[in-house]
Amino acid sequence: MVRLPWLARTAFNKIRTQAEQVGAFLLFLAEIAQQALRLPFRRHEIFRQIEFVGNQSLMIILLTGFATGAVFGLQIGGIFTIFRAEGIIGGATGIALSTELAPLVTGFLLAGRAGSAMTAEISTMVVNEQVDALEAMGISPIHYLVVPRVLASMFIMPFLCGLFMFAGIAGVWMIGRLLFNVDEGIFMDKLISMVQSTDIIKGLRKMFFFSFIISATSCRYGLNASKGAKGVGLATTNAVVHTLLLILVMDFMITWMEVRWLS
């Protein structure tokens, strides 16, 4: 047998491990889809998760959306003033928010706020043998723990993204009115004429896919947490880091497809 050099062997093993992890993740996603079609439909648990993800993330989404819109308005307002084009500050911010900023920042926020909480909760259940107890009772942990979280996230996260857009517009409106003296009528006119409904749909569509990634990745890391004192912390950190990376990769892929085919 040909003896590979140490570096090549290490690289091969790393690639193989990564490929195995990607394969396992895809199988996990397939099982979520399969279990989601099975009864019973856990209505109460889905509502509980909607309340947890939606209601409890509302303030942070509104505040961040408002601040993002205001800061973006400040930045571009200064540039637009040079060309005496302050009037389009609302429209320009609206396009940036709806197509990119809102889904991306909302995705990051929810990965940190809701996704990490999902991982922490499920990994604590793993450490305390509660997931083993479910298996011992003949209940699929994916059906009981993962499917309600994924369905609730896919339902409520796009709503939160819409609220982020709305709060962002409020932020840029305030900046436009207070700092750049933009006329209210011109602001609204440019906003409505520049921001198309398709821009908003693009943003919400992105958020729909991000919500699946956030919830599924968070739950997977929770279920795979190692038993021990470090298990919960490590699982939560890894879940957030990988979710953020996956959001960025998916954002690029969706945007690329939109630019290449859909537009």
Binding site: N128, E129, A133, A136
Partner: peptide
């Protein structure tokens, strides 16, 4: 999974569900 429904198991640390009361834990199966 359906075979395991014929089993009951007492775990080393009981493995009760924290978010449920004692009664809800018992009613769960």
């Amino acid at each position: 999974r359906s075979y395991r429904r014929h089993f009951g198991m007492l775990f080393q640390h009981a493995a009760l569900f924290d978010s449920m009361t004692v009664l809800d834990n018992i009613l769960f199966p």
